[in-house]
Design a protein around this nucleic acid. Structure first.
Length: 371
DNA sequence: ATCCCGTGCTAATAACGGCC
DNA sequence: GGCCGTTATTAGCACGGGAT
């Protein structure tokens, strides 16, 4: 028997010894702190060692929670990590970028927890993708903040297209409905007992595909081939009775079915008015020369590519907000209001960029606060 | 620079099963 | 039997990358 020196867990073999990760958390950035909070701030060059007994968290939120717990950070903050390619701190959008002994920079944003502001405005500058989209640090926070930390408006059902997570390292198979779980439990027991694979009834398969597609949609509308492999592999690992005979991977047919399902699911959501998908509709484009393969998809690591307008908001109402924002922008010492307005109009900006494809000069004149 | 092939997308539609 | 929803298939299109 072996005992872990850090967490004291006892495991049966040396190979099972838990791997612990240590990350240096330091270089507190006080840029966005108000002067009266400076005393709370450890200041620059203050570094702590962060031990992660369960390994690198799956997402940035879990990592932030660890930092809050272990380092006692009470305010909102975003994270940067030391990138070895560029040898400088870059914004941390996924814990996939982290490895053991890495160095993380905590940048306090000083934005209240209830504000939608920084989240969405930061995404807007991240998503613009034009050479003129200067990275404005004042609006920059973690784009992967948890849904719970969003305001009531952004967590409403109508705003459910706002994504909060990057594609996970280990895809979590969702809990299926009771009857599906019942059949799978029985199937798995049967498989454990005598290796019998489950005979899939169409309804069962349909239910499974429906749940999986819904879960995938939380991360991506257009999962890649490897994404689909991740999902199917996770499925047959969790429910071995669903493996396929004669398939090298054990999930080839699942992958094809899931691909069809995602295509049909996109069509379904498009009919329901999901902006991210409507934008790729041929019908929407009318007689334009744009073809279906020219699909607007999020680039790598982008989230909230094309959010719907929040409940109760329309293009017109957000356009009015933009005009208010323009006048607020002319006032001095008005950062907080501008931040809030920028956050509120984030869906409008994204829709404008994606649907209208404005010239950069026009866009800059319409949204000067972004630059 | 051009050609060819694989890939991935939408839209339309066939095939199938469940329900009334 | 007809309707409806879901899954699977096909057509058509252009892009990207490798070969020439």
């Amino acid at each position: 028997m072996w005992q872990c020196k850090l967490c004291k867990k006892v495991v049966s073999s040396r190979a099972l010894l838990l791997k612990h990760y240590r990350v240096t958390v330091g270089d507190w950035d006080i840029r966005n702190d108000s002067p009266n909070k400076a005393s709370d701030n450890p200041g620059e060059n203050n570094a702590l060692k962060l031990t992660l007994p369960l390994g690198i968290p799956k997402n940035v939120n879990e990592l932030k929670a660890e930092i809050e717990n272990q380092c006692g950070v009470s305010e909102q903050f975003r994270l940067q990590y030391m990138d070895t390619d560029f040898n400088q701190f870059l914004n941390l959008t996924s814990t996939f970028d982290l490895k053991d002994m890495d160095k993380i920079k905590v940048i306090k944003t000083g934005v209240p927890e209830t504000s939608t502001g920084s989240n969405e405005s930061s995404v807007s500058s991240f998503n613009l993708g034009s050479p003129c989209s200067g990275h404005n640090p004042d609006y920059d926070t973690d784009i992967l903040s948890s849904p719970e930390s969003r305001s009531s408006s952004s967590s409403s059902s109508a705003n459910s297209t706002l994504r909060s997570e990057a594609w996970p390292l280990d895809f979590r198979i969702p809990e299926f409905s009771f009857d599906v779980e019942l059949q799978l439990t029985k199937g798995n027991q049967e498989f454990q007992a005598n290796g019998t694979l489950l005979t899939l009834k169409p309804k069962l398969k349909s239910d499974i595909l429906e749940s999986l597609s819904s879960e995938i949609m939380k991360y991506k509308a257009y999962p890649s081939d490897s994404n689909l492999s991740d999902v199917c592999q996770a499925l047959v690992v969790k429910h071995p009775c669903l493996k396929e005979k004669g398939s090298e991977t054990g999930f080839s047919a699942w992958k094809i079915s899931l691909k069809y399902k995602m295509s049909n699911y996109r069509g379904k959501l498009k009919n329901l008015g999901c902006s991210e998908l409507v934008i790729n509709s041929l019908k929407r484009r009318g007689n334009s020369n744009v073809h279906p393969n020219q699909v607007k998809k999020p680039r790598r690591a982008e989230v909230n590519f094309c959010p719907d307008y929040p409940a109760g908001e329309t293009r017109e109402s957000q356009e009015e907000e933009r005009l208010v924002l323009l006048s607020e922008f002319k006032k001095k010492n008005n950062d907080e209001t501008i931040k809030a307005k920028m956050a509120q109009t984030f869906p409008h900006r994204r829709q404008e960029i994606l649907q209208d494809m404005p010239f950069v000069a026009d866009f800059k004149s319409r949204w000067p606060a972004l630059f």
